[in-house]
Design a binder for these strands. Sequence first.
DNA 1: GTATTCGATGTCATCAAGTGACATCACTGG
DNA 2: CCAGTGATGTCACTTGATGACATCGAATAC
Lengths: 187, 187
Amino acid sequence: MARWQEGAAGRLQEAALRLYAERGYEQTTVADIASEAGVTARTFFRHYADKREVLFAGSERLRDGMLEALDAVPPAAGPMAAVAAALDASAVLLGRDHAHSRTRGAVISANAELMERELIKMATLAAAMADELRKRGVPAGDASLAAEAGAVVLRVAFEQWLNGPPEASLRDLMRATMARLPQVAAP
Amino acid sequence: MARWQEGAAGRLQEAALRLYAERGYEQTTVADIASEAGVTARTFFRHYADKREVLFAGSERLRDGMLEALDAVPPAAGPMAAVAAALDASAVLLGRDHAHSRTRGAVISANAELMERELIKMATLAAAMADELRKRGVPAGDASLAAEAGAVVLRVAFEQWLNGPPEASLRDLMRATMARLPQVAAP
DNA sequence: GTATTCGATGTCATCAAGTGACATCACTGG
DNA sequence: CCAGTGATGTCACTTGATGACATCGAATAC
C-alpha cells in the first residue's frame, strides 16, 4: 500500500475541470482543487505550473502528433499539403470526446485568462510547424504564413465542431475549412 | 498647484517599459513601477487592470481605426478587400516609431505572459473584424477566416518590419504579405 | 534482513499580484 | 464660504506562486 494514492495529476485535472465548470474559474481556488483531489495546494503546483495549465495537459502530445504527421509528408509536396496532413492528425487527437471538449471549451471561452493560455498554445503549435517547414526548405516567410494559416483553420473548424452535432467529423470540417481558405483569401 | 502631478498614466507607462526593458518583466514589481512614477502601487491598478496591461494601452485606438477603415470600404468589395483596408489603417498607427516598437516588441517576446496578452489582443481584433464583416453580409465562416487571415498577415508583416531596417514601410510589407497569402494557402 | 537512497508529498514561511473600504485634500460650482 | 467631486494614499486581506526543509513508504543495494 502506497503512502499516497496514485494518479494525483489525473485527479487534479478532473477536479479542476469539474470545479471550473461548476462555479467558474475565478471562483475556484487552487486549495479547493487540491483538497478535492486529496492533496495540498503545494502538490498542485508540483504537477502543474499554474492554475491554468491544468486544463492544457496533453498539448505536447498534440504537437508531437502533428509534427510527426507533417514530417511524414514527402518534401516535394507544397507547405500547405504538409500542414493539411498535420491538421488531419490533430483531428484524430482532438475529435475523440465531443462532450468533454465542449465542457472544456465552455470553461475556457468563459474566461479571458484561459483564452490567453489557449491562444499561446496554438501560437506555439504554429511556430513549431513553421520551424519544421523551414527545415524542409520552405522560405521563412512562407513557412510562417502557411503554419499560421493552418492554425487559423484548426481554430475555426474546431469551434464549428464544438457548436455542431456530436457525430460530425472534425476531420471533414477541417478539410472543408482548409479548402475554403484560398478562396476567401483571394482578393 | 494640484495635489498630485498630472499624467500619472503616461508616467506609469514610460516607467514600466523602461524597467521591463532594463531588468526584465518578472524582475520588476508593480511597486517598483509606481515608485518610479511617483505614485503608490494602488494607483497603478487604478490606471491599469494588471501588470501586463500597461504595455497595451492604445489597443482600443488601433481597433477603432481598423474598424473605421473597414467600414469605409463599399460592401460590394469582397471581405478580403475590406480586411486589406483595415490593415492599411493599422500600418499607419503601428508603423510610426520603429525604435519604440522594437523595444516594446523585445520586452513582449521575452516573456510568455506578455505574449499571451499580445495574442489575445490580436484575437479580439480579429473577432471584431469578423463581426463587422458579418454585419456586411459575409457568411459567418468566411468572415472568421478572412478576419483571422488578416490578423495573421498583420502579425507576420509586423514582425518582419521590426526585424528590418527602420526606413522600411510597414504598409508595403503588409501588402506584400497579403498578396503572398493566397499563393501559399493554395494546395 | 538491514541499511541506504529515492520520490512524491506535507509543512512552513514568504513574496507579489490584485481588490475592497475608507480617509484625504486640492479644486470647483454655487 | 461650503458641499461635492475626483485622483490619490493607507490599510487590511485573499490568492497565486515559490523556496527550504521534513517525512515516510518503497525500491534497491549489500
